[in-house]
Design a protein around this nucleic acid. Structure first.
Lengths: 309, 309
DNA sequence: CATGTTCATCAGATAATCTTATCGTTACGA
DNA sequence: TCGTAACGATAAGATTATCTGATGAACATG
């Protein structure tokens, strides 16, 4: 009977992912020889070579590759035992690995973290900010517990719940203040600034304007940059309503709301259907939704003041 | 991050199965304190009680029960890594855990083991003899690699291949020698001796006679006993053709073949569809089929001699 | 009330695993 | 062609995890 240890599986998984003994060892918080030894023992136990140590690089054998897949799956199940235990105790405690897209995180996160830690002091929130495809991948692979992204995600293995919808507002240089708001047609004639590729918000903005490809390569890496560029007179842009408060406070730009139907997107939370934390995540999604709601109210009050001043 | 070891999972699995610290420890080939400690550490790591230690017995908590299920699944996957490794090397080596029903095993086994070890000297055959339901259960749970049973099994997770068909012969007290062979109708009027409940061969015999329930409680626990009972004049019985050579050699009974269509059953081999040993098992099934074939030829020759003498 | 069974606890022994230091190989630039 | 740097393998000693055997505590049973 073959005797594999969890260590061997974890070390091998890290090595398979990173393809480098030193870095894998670092990731496992051990020294490189320790990892080498465990991998060797694993190869002896299984009676097959897992990876080819070519000079300059390490590459999985076909056998190693297939094994790595199985091992990943096993480790995922093992890690879920911990989640399952937590869920069984039926309290919101322990680690929560939450992903969030960059066009939501900066605005929603402070409030969400505040609310969550206030209501559940024992919770240990780890946030990762990435674009949707990466978040979904990490979620499916069990390296995240949940993610907040724009819906729909349409990944059959995930549960998605809607949190809120947010409108897009037009940001123009200050001299436009008071002029008519263009519709999506005329917007196509203007110089529209966008986020760089991969951001879902870029696609959502393009889709509203019915545009295929941008005419110029002037993509920004954050909404903040985008607004600064508008302030510098380089063009116009759209930003989600939630970003208004933070991003336009210190910039000299003009904000305008589109005519109905306003462009908008739906933000939701997703998690693995099989996650043992499902019940807890549903609770958390309600807290996040509440946080968004209160942010919206706060923003409305702020806008009111601004207009009056 | 929770840190469970494979040991803890294996010990817990044994404990969950056996419900007894001492016996589980024995099964794991360790002392009882060692097991107690690992279970305790596991409970600490998971932050929940896995089993209630009532005096006189150990009982899984609800949490423990659910966890045990997941752990079993994980261990199955881990053990399959070894099988997968063997399969990848694409040779027939290592442990082969083979189940067989009691009405086949004694007659087929010697030949099969001989043939298998001759063709694949590196193979290490472990045979378990049980009735079909238990074999199927153990197979599905990964505690057997393959089983030889009567078809059909109709378990969607299993692959089944037919090995051979065998006729049933009538066994009567010696004074019947030469008298007409009854058909299935008139068989119902005779005193039919059967194996005890749970043997598939019992059901197959009953089904041929179109009978529902036996009239008397005279069930035997083996074909050998059954033939002895017939020899003692207690009634008549059916036995599968393969058992004829061994079981009627030393008994004074009369053997008779039924008219066509003779009653018969199909014997086959089954294994998990997901088994990494699938290719090897297919090879093995061919060897087993060949063994059965050669046994049949040998029996025919023997019968020929008998008739002549 | 004595006894046997069962699981928990403890101390010392044993085995598994890690770290540090070092080696051998290979790639690459002077 | 040689020196250097990067990388993984190996070895020796230290550390940590795990095991055994003895013993204790709780409880049921005759």
């Amino acid at each position: 009977m073959i005797h594999l240890t969890m260590r061997q599986l974890r070390y091998f998984d890290a090595l398979a992912r990173l393809g480098h003994f030193g870095r894998a060892a670092e990731a496992c918080a051990i020294s490189q020889p320790a990892l080498s030894m465990q991998i060797k023992e694993m190869e002896d136990a299984l009676g097959g070579v897992l990876l080819e140590r070519n000079a300059r690089q390490v590459v999985l054998t076909r056998f190693g590759e297939q094994l790595a897949e199985r091992v990943r799956e096993i480790l995922r199940s093992v890690d879920e035992l911990g989640d399952f235990a937590r869920a069984s105790r039926d309290k919101l405690t322990g680690r929560l690995r939450l992903g969030m897209i960059p066009t939501v995180a900066p605005y929603l996160l402070p409030k969400v973290i505040g609310d969550l830690t206030r209501k559940h002091p024992e919770i240990d929130i780890h946030v990762r900010e990435s674009k949707t495809p990466k978040l979904i991948e990490e979620l499916v692979e069990g390296r995240l517990d949940a993610a907040i992204v724009a819906l729909p995600v349409s990944e059959p293995s995930l549960t998605e719940v809607a949190l809120f919808s947010e409108n897009f507002l037009l940001v123009r240089p200050p001299e436009y203040e008071g002029t008519a708001v263009p519709n999506s047609e005329s917007l196509r004639e203007m110089r529209l600034l966008l986020l760089e590729e991969g951001h879902c918000f870029r696609d959502q903005a393009l889709s509203f304007c019915n545009m295929q490809a941008p005419r110029e390569m002037l993509d920004a890496s954050s909404l903040s940059t985008l607004v600064q560029m508008v302030g510098a007179g380089m063009g116009v842009t759209l930003i989600p309503e939630m970003a208004v408060g933070v991003e336009t406070r210190s910039a000299s730009v003009s904000l305008a709301r589109f005519a109905e139907p306003q462009p908008q997107r739906s933000i939701g939370m997703v998690w693995r259907k099989t996650s043992p934390l499902a019940k807890q995540l549903m609770q958390i999604s309600e807290i996040v939704g509440g946080a968004a709601e209160s942010l919206r109210k706060q923003a409305a009050a702020g806008q009111g003041r601004k207009r009056r001043s």
